[in-house]
Design a protein around this nucleic acid. Structure first.
Lengths: 332, 332
DNA sequence: TTGTAGGCGTTATCAC
DNA sequence: GTGATAACGCCTACAA
């Protein structure tokens, strides 16, 4: 910057003013400065700027599982929205690991991120209290977090009920549920939706019909296999996430159970295209891209101290079996 | 830090020495400092440190397509390896967009990343020359980059030939190839492998059997559909990436073409589990996680000025149809 | 409108 | 072994 100021024959303060637009500058000196910047290919050092301003124009995005397309779609929403507003995004994959998540929260704080968007590893154990008390805005997505500055969520109970009712509407009378880890609150909510819908319909929903798994393929596989081993087999299964659905489909396939003739299945969230290879698999889909967009919008509004609603709830959508599947609208 | 130094009754310089281990410190003062650090919950400001040291302990990872599980697996490899060595990773998704990639390269440079790992959007147009000339190490993965400091690659020509020969071995005599964008060098290499293998076997490989698509589901879908519309239909198809394979499978399914009876298909890279739902789909798999690990190892070796081989070539592996599929070994 | 000067939180240098 | 002190590159009072 010193070079630029010399080249333009002004002080470094003026260069700074031109570059940041923080104050009025004589048009002539302004052009001189810009010419010098251009000539020397000068670019401000973001680290120094961050140190001085105590704010970095960087948003940290901490996600639960980078190999799950739901979260990557959220990422893209955050990204696109944040970049439009002049923010950079740094992405961290906590990998469902509370320790890894904690490590990232520390790093991100120490790196002076301007704000944080997080899909928490745990509603209880994820601790953002010191961040929030330091005034750092934190937006929760996917899972509610009591201390969060804001949130963008889907009502997982409703979504779970929506999925379950679809199976009921299709005539299932003995519906099982493969849900996520017991301590995971979204899994609990989706399960609760299942319990509500089955109860309303007077259908059985006892412990034998419920399986807790790890939200991963192998978990869905094992859980489904065990359901198929029941004496009183279910005639419908609600699998509460996309990766487990893949495992579940495989278990059904290996067992020679045909969908929908021998078994009705509904999943939760897409795998881009892959689940559509199974035309008889319905699913409930969260607007992942939109969740990301809204989270970024919310965070930036907080950073700008704008008045805005703090908590957004979006609707999940039923993609019913054999229905025409709309293209995922990213730009919506 | 000033607080800590007061608390411990020493100067800030000593605190720094204790924390960084940059010089010997009297054990007694050392414990006093650490006690003060503990008591006050002090944590160094990484931005200030980065400014002073002109090095950030942050590695930037720029990937091509965050929705492609191949790249996310690379991420995890980089991550795990980098964190072990005390580096943080910031992840950027260039989205096959050369402009977005350029923007990220700038941001990352301005943020003073210590080094860069990149899967380039283009072998020709991705420009890292100024980074490299500034002394920033850049490791290319997935696609070679002439200016790169180092690289971790798979021989895509060999891999393409490997895939094609598998179809040949299975008795195909008219093999088509759905490859990526014409200007994409990995796509060109995989295609070249196909051309070589078919030529060696005396099989046709004319323009009608070759489709260029966008490495995405819709591209694979359209390309496959057009292959199926040929007067002289192929009896085998090599689809050069995982996302296109999903689209291709869908096109075949819609057309009622059964694998492997009506058509043999081989893909390239996995979708975690999803492609295994199609037990008759073989594929050639790159060691994605390992590529990421090696890239991080290489980069860190460069940062530490260690002598090391600069360019690593790993082997792709054939996962033959109906063969038992080994679990993806992440920790390998 | 512009320049001077000081400080953001560290660490490196140089005395002691 | 330890403490002043300067400097990393930028921004912003304050003064001119």
């Amino acid at each position: 910057m010193l070079d630029v100021s010399r080249e333009a024959g002004v002080s470094s303060a003026t260069v700074s003013r031109v570059l940041t637009g923080s104050a009025e500058v004589e048009p002539a000196t302004r052009t001189a400065v810009l010419a010098a910047v251009e000539k020397l290919g000068y670019r401000p050092n973001l680290v120094a700027r961050g140190l001085r301003r105590q704010a970095s124009q960087v948003i940290a995005l901490i996600i639960t599982d980078i190999e799950n397309p739901f979260y990557t779609a959220v990422c893209r929403g955050v990204e696109d929205s944040a970049r439009l507003a002049g923010y950079s995004v740094i992405l961290c994959n906590a990998d469902r690991d509370i320790e890894k998540e904690r490590a990232y929260l520390r790093v991100v704080e120490d790196q002076n991120a301007s704000g944080i968007i997080i899909s928490p590893a745990s509603a209880q154990r994820t601790d953002i209290s010191n961040l929030v008390s330091r005034g750092l805005p934190v937006i929760a997505v996917d899972m509610a977090l009591a201390a969060a500055t804001g949130s963008v969520l889907v009502d997982n109970k409703d979504a779970g009920a929506l999925a379950t009712r679809h199976l009921i509407d299709r005539g299932c009378t003995r519906i099982a549920c493969v849900t996520g880890p017991a301590e995971n609150s979204t899994a609990a909510d989706r399960l609760e939706g299942y319990l509500r819908a089955t109860a309303e319909a007077g259908l059985p929903n006892g412990r034998d019909l419920i399986r807790y798994a790890n939200y991963m393929e192998d978990g869905g596989y094992e859980a489904t296999k065990r359901l198929l081993a029941l004496k009183k087999k279910p005639d419908g299964i609600f699998i509460t996430n996309n990766r487990m659905a893949v495992g579940g489909l495989r278990a059904l396939q290996e067992a020679g159970v045909a969908i929908p003739n021998d078994m009705d299945v509904i999943g939760f969230d897409e795998l881009p295209w892959a689940l559509r290879l199974h035309p008889h698999l319905s699913l409930v889909r969260q607007p992942a891209y939109r969740i990301g967009q809204e989270a970024a919008r919310l965070l930036i509004a907080c950073l700008r101290k704008e008045e805005t609603e703090r908590h957004i709830v979006l609707d999940a959508e039923l993609i019913a079996q054999d229905d025409p599947v709309p293209r995922p609208s990213r730009k919506a």
